[in-house]
Design a protein around this nucleic acid. Structure first.
Length: 265
DNA sequence: TGCCATGTTAATGC
DNA sequence: TGCATTAACATGGC
């Protein structure tokens, strides 16, 4: 069986793609043994996972959860985490799950910002899912906050699932400046942002996410949404709407891309 | 060589 | 309390 790789810089669309792909591969399988190959990948005793059955795989924000007959394996992908089925172990393989049908689920992570933990229930500390919250509730939530749009949208306790790439793309689609004040947005503009986020994420999921760098799948299982980015990584290039040059600034230590003409402050 | 990219958390200050 | 700011973590790529 060929190895299948999924990557990279995982945000909601990538986590959704991983969860869907894994779901068909590991649902119903019982875990035989688990090995943690790096100290920082998990604080849990891998022996506790033996004998548990994987019911299904779900996405929670930009994270992936293996739903077990008892509890969940909470997978934080970090920056470079990847869940692989039947991959050959390499230098960056941090955890290996051997399953009862002889298949193997492994967690590879170059930079080790990812982690695995055994938990009883999905974390309650995160904000609503952007594909579940409705426009009116989103607008109300936005207006109740004082921060600027970009830092707010990156904050997982405000909304779960967006990262640097999709925040920039969503703000561009909505025609909003990354430093605009959330509390001053008119309801119609806030609802427009909600719609832009939902449309963007739906498009990105349809393209199996964005693959910027890192792993390449030998079988072609790579996201293609990076080809449809409009501002992220496009500094100096003409805006697809107006031709103005895309600008890059730094906001909360993150590269931030926008069109100075289409996204007025 | 040294800096960049990134998600998350923590620390500090207002 | 909430918000802004900065640093830390890891490491391949440039």
């Amino acid at each position: 069986m060929a190895a299948t790789y999924w990557s990279t810089l995982p945000e909601l669309p990538e986590a959704e793609t991983i969860a869907r792909s894994l779901r068909s591969a590991v649902s119903g399988r019982t875990i035989v043994t688990v090995a943690f190959l790096a100290k920082r990948v998990s604080q849990d005793d891998p022996a506790r996972l033996a004998g548990r059955t994987i019911r299904t795989v779900v996405r929670h924000g930009k994270q992936v959860m293996l739903e077990l007959d008892r509890g969940f394996v909470h997978v934080k992908l970090g920056m470079t985490g990847a869940l692989l089925v039947n991959a050959v172990a390499g230098a960056y393989t941090r955890a290996v799950f051997d399953l009862d049908d002889g298949s193997r689920l492994s967690f590879d992570d170059i930079r080790q910002f990812g982690s695995l933990s055994l938990i009883d229930a999905p974390p309650a500390t995160l904000g609503p899912d952007p594909l579940e919250i409705d426009a009116v509730a989103f607008a109300a939530r936005l207006r109740a906050r004082r921060g600027k749009l970009k830092p707010l949208l990156l904050n997982q306790s405000f909304l779960r699932g967006l990262g640097n790439i999709y925040v920039d793309e969503a703000l561009f689609r909505a025609g909003l400046h990354p430093l605009a004040a959330a509390e001053r947005l008119k309801p119609a503009r806030a609802e427009g942002l909600h719609a832009a986020i939902a449309e963007l994420l739906t498009d990105a999921i349809a393209h199996r996410g964005s693959s910027i760098s890192d792993y390449v799948d030998a079988a072609g299982e790579r996201g293609s949404f990076q080809n449809l980015h409009r501002v992220y990584g496009k500094e100096g290039q003409p805006c697809v709407n107006c031709g103005e040059h895309i600008r890059r600034i730094v906001v909360v230590q993150r590269g931030t891309h926008f069109c100075p003409h289409c996204q007025r402050r």
